[in-house]
Computed example of a mutant assay.
Amino acid sequence: MAGLDDITNKAKEFLDSGAVKDALKSEQAEDISDKLLDGVADAANKVTGGKFEEQIDGARDAADGKIGNE
Rank of each mutant, 00 (worst) to 15 (best):
M1S: 10
M1N: 07
A2N: 07
D5V: 06
I7G: 02
K10A: 00
A11G: 00
E13V: 03
E13R: 04
E13T: 06
E13N: 05
F14L: 04
F14K: 05
L15E: 05
L15G: 00
S17D: 11
S17E: 10
G18M: 10
G18Q: 15
G18T: 11
A19R: 15
V20Y: 14
K21R: 08
K21I: 07
D22Q: 15
D22W: 12
D22T: 13
D22A: 15
A23L: 14
L24S: 03
K25I: 02
S26D: 06
S26H: 07
E27M: 04
Q28Y: 06
Q28W: 05
Q28N: 01
A29W: 04
I32Q: 10
S33E: 06
S33H: 09
S33Q: 06
S33F: 09
S33T: 11
S33V: 07
K35S: 12
L37Q: 09
L37P: 01
D38V: 03
D38Y: 01
G39T: 01
A41G: 08
D42F: 00
A43G: 03
A43E: 14
A43D: 11
N45G: 10
K46T: 10
K46N: 11
V47T: 11
V47I: 15
T48I: 02
G50V: 03
G50D: 04
K51M: 13
F52W: 03
E53G: 13
E53F: 06
E54G: 05
Q55C: 03
I56F: 00
I56A: 00
G58Q: 12
A59S: 08
A59L: 15
A59P: 02
A59R: 07
R60L: 01
R60I: 00
R60H: 00
R60P: 00
R60A: 00
A62F: 11
A62C: 06
A62S: 10
K66P: 01
I67G: 15
I67C: 14
I67E: 13
I67Y: 13
G68T: 06
